[in-house]
Simulated scan of single mutants.
Amino acid sequence: MSEPQKTVDSYISYALAAAHRKLHIELSQNLKALNVQVETWRVLQSLRASQGTTMRELAEIVLMNPPTLTKLVDRMVADGLVQRQLSAEDQRRVQLALTDLGVTLADKIALHVEAQNDWIIETIGFEKAQLLREALDTLA
């Protein structure tokens, strides 16, 4: 007689996916009021933290494939949130930077993201949140 098979929800990878889905949906709904997608927030926040990022670097940071990121950045440039600049060190290298409008929007979005982050910490506790963060960083 064989052992009963585990249910899908008994796996850690499933629990991670379920938590990610829930948090992503909630954040998406909160950002709809600003007409912003979660991926747009990732780009804005990443550029806010490090001006002068290339598309290749940004794709790795924001967890997007380059063609999809290019389309998103093109829209953000058209919306006046991001600008492309030639690197002062290497004229062949194009870097991305936030415009003033991009910084303003990033500040508005940060309120929603910080609220969600605070809710997570409040829900599971500071120590568990730190352990979770360390565990996820190890897996990544």
Rank of each mutant, 00 (worst) to 15 (best):
L27S: 07
Q29V: 06
I12E: 05
D118N: 11
S13R: 06
Q5M: 13
G80T: 09
D74S: 10
Q130H: 05
L86K: 06
P67K: 14
D79R: 15
I121M: 13
V94I: 13
E134D: 15
K71S: 14
L139C: 02
T138Y: 04
G102V: 06
S50A: 13
M76P: 07
D90T: 04
I120C: 09
Q51C: 03
G102Y: 04
I61K: 15
T70R: 06
E89G: 03
F126Y: 04
T53P: 00
E26I: 08
T68F: 01
L131D: 08
D79A: 14
K22Y: 09
A115I: 01
R56N: 07
R75T: 10
K71M: 08
D100N: 12
M55K: 14
D9C: 02
L81S: 02
D90E: 07
L96K: 12
L131A: 15
W41F: 15
T40R: 15
G125I: 12
E39Y: 00
T123N: 02
G102M: 05
L101Q: 15
D9H: 09
E57D: 11
R93H: 02
V43S: 09
D118A: 15
Q29W: 00
L105D: 03
E60F: 04
L58Y: 00
Q5L: 13
V43H: 05
L72W: 00
Q45A: 15
D74L: 05
H112I: 08
L23I: 06
W41R: 12
L27Q: 11
L31R: 09
G125T: 11
P4K: 06
E26V: 11
A78S: 09
S87L: 01
E39W: 03
I25S: 09
R133S: 15
E57F: 00
H20Y: 08
Q29H: 13
D90W: 02
K6L: 09
T123W: 02
W41S: 13
L27A: 05
Q5V: 08
